[in-house]
Design a protein around this nucleic acid. Structure first.
Lengths: 221, 221
DNA sequence: TAGCTTGTTATCCACTTGGACAACAACCGG
DNA sequence: CCGGTTGTTGTCCAAGTGGATAACAAGCTA
């Protein structure tokens, strides 16, 4: 009669919020692996360990589920990131923000780019997130300038530029496999140092821990 | 009895090569609109104006069709580009290569990035294409250096860097909509000029015509 | 013109998908 | 302990998918 600590008896219930969160996280995991268009209600259900009808109980439609998953990714990313950066000196913050992130993280983003033109809700969320990221990076650049460590004629424009470089480098690293993680960081750091007039090599020496994408567990290996 | 110039009578046949090409181009058009995973044999058939069984007559499977479509995009892109660049002076060639391309072109590429991790054949084609692009741009950079107009310690590395910048900027322009086409070009040209020690503004003044993506018709508007 | 090749059509099939729904069972307030 | 709320299941459905196949018809060659 002794049942295992992890109860499996039929009918065992979880609180609404708990289950919702579980479903969203599972969805996001599958999105990273199969893309927004590739996730299936049944796959999500299997991943969570429930019947696919239950997903419908929490989300009125597949679209709503996917939107919730992306929203979760965006929100939780910015929440942790902002907090993390505030505790660092400007150079470490800049290096952390620009450092290459893990694979799952970027797979979700690249998939979002690919899906956005067909999914207005996703495009809107993406644009919002992009603005938030630009704001955060702009603030970091301003801190660097204020500390007298570098210069920027237009911090917001430099923020957009560095974001573009980081994204493009991430594609070459994660998707094409043309460069490894060290080269990726070198490229981004190099542009940032030249653009902001920083001492060459200062960003790499900051020995950065990636500040973005903490919600995505490291890839399976 | 007079039939229109464009024959529509049942059973009218096209040559094998002609039809194949027609199908591949239609597929590519749909890929730009719906992504690699989103194209359906029936949609392709409708776009071409035939029955979906006919697609199977030319391509053994959906995967084979999609692979052929991507292969066509890659091949025809490089064929026209290489030719076009050889006729230009180094600065114009560099500017043309880096200039923002049309939307359809980049949608296909972004979709390929998103699909590559799940589709080995696509990943391989993408990597090959990336190498070819790197080689072409490297050669252009070398021509710039040889002409005494700029400097590069490592033309191949600079080629990878500029490719990354162009890709990242394209995402911000086409997907996020955060910048317009002029800003996009300014950002890429600016990095290129600084990286290669060119006279500032020389690339924009080259009044470049985009050298890439000629296979994709301009977006519908 | 006869006959073969092959481009083309029209159906059929097994399967998966998102969604709907009724029955069940755990929890909670009375 | 009772009754309603709600998390959960199992099952059904229509629509759409990729693929298979047989019949048809256009064009070529003999």
């Amino acid at each position: 009669m002794a049942q295992s600590a992890v109860e499996k008896r039929p009918g065992a219930r979880k609180s609404s919020d708990e289950r919702r969160d579980e479903i969203v996280r599972a969805t996001l995991r599958l999105v990273a692996a199969k893309g927004f268009a590739g996730v299936t209600l049944r796959e999500v259900a299997t991943e969570v360990g429930v019947v696919h009808g239950l997903i419908r109980h929490y989300f009125a439609s597949r679209d709503e589920l996917v939107a919730a998953a992306f929203d979760f990714a965006v929100t939780s990313e910015l929440a942790t990131d902002q907090q993390q950066l505030d505790g660092l000196d400007p150079i470490a913050a800049l290096a952390g923000w620009l450092a290459a992130t893990n694979e799952n993280h970027y797979h979700v983003w690249i998939d979002a780019w690919s899906e956005a033109p067909r999914t207005p809700a996703l495009a809107a969320a993406l644009a919002r997130h992009h603005d938030d990221c630009e704001r955060i990076l702009t603030r970091v650049i301003e801190r660097v300038v204020d500390a007298g460590l570098g210069a920027s004629a237009d911090p917001a424009a430099d923020s957009r530029l560095l974001t573009a470089v980081a994204d493009g480098v991430a594609v070459q690293h994660h998707v094409v496999g043309a460069i490894d993680v060290d080269e990726a960081n070198d490229m981004v750091f190099g542009v940032a140092e030249r653009q902001l007039g920083l001492e060459p090599g200062i960003l790499a020496r900051a020995n950065p821990v990636p500040a973005r994408g903490q919600w995505a567990e490291a890839p399976a290996r």
